[in-house]
Amino acid sequence: MTTTIHVRGLTKRYGEVQAVGGLDLDIHTGEVFAILGPNGAGKSTTVEILEGYRKRDAGEVSVLGVDPGQATTAWRARVGIVLQTANDAAELTVRETVRHFARYYPDSKDPDEVIDKVGLSEKAGARIRQLSGGQRRRVDVALGIVGRPELLFLDEPTTGFDPEARRQFWDLIRSLSAEGTTIVLTTHYLDEAEALADRVAVIAKGRIVAEGTPGTLGGRATASARVTWADGHAETDTPTALVRTLADKYDGEIPGLQVVRPSLEDIYLDLIGDAQ
């Protein structure tokens, strides 16, 4: 397994505020990695250092084998960035914009194919100003991937989307991942992380407080389950045994049966709570 992003002891201060305090992180080639954390936890600062936008105070950072603090044009051509807020180029059409950005890259994809891939073929001739929020974000993704990046950063890509647009967006991310692109995603939506990410890290107070697959994060897989039925409820580490006992007792269907493991959101809120 090769490593695309390698971080050790990353530190960044803004005046008196310690934004990132000794953060370690490894992101493997080809995986979808989600970074979760409350606002002000150091999430954006960390990602912007990885993207080469901000200087760090201390620590060791390598992205695609290069220190992003010394980013070169050649390195930029291998990295795609989809920013959180961009309202630029409103009076250009989708096609004009994607074609123009394709010129920046040595080995760009065909602009029309990219537009098709993000599902905007019908809007290719429309001015960006006329697009909906979700379509606008698809343009951002198109600009992020037109240079055929090995690594793609997505900063809270589906904020403000309706549920259907989010599902479509997720399909787009999955298809990029299937092509082998390493994807680093920051998000506030835990269901999004669960749906897309191979691995998840939770940042709080400038450090990683938990890291793992969405299913095992923070001991989720081994946490006790809550079993509820018509006449009672119980917390148990062996829900299957309990359900078997209940099934015998009721001799068939158990009325009102529910078996619930803690959701990613429960685990996340616990982790954030502990860190504060």
Binding site: E51, G52, Y53, T73, A74, R76, A77, V79, I81, L83, T85, A86, N87, D88, A89, F101, Y104, Y105, P106, L143, G147
Partner: peptide, 17 residues
């Protein structure tokens, strides 16, 4: 305006000279 609306930041993230 370019600095405010994200044009410059987006360009700075590309290999554009």
């Amino acid at each position: 305006i370019d600095r405010d609306d994200g044009t410059l930041k987006r360009l700075a993230g590309t290999p554009m000279p």
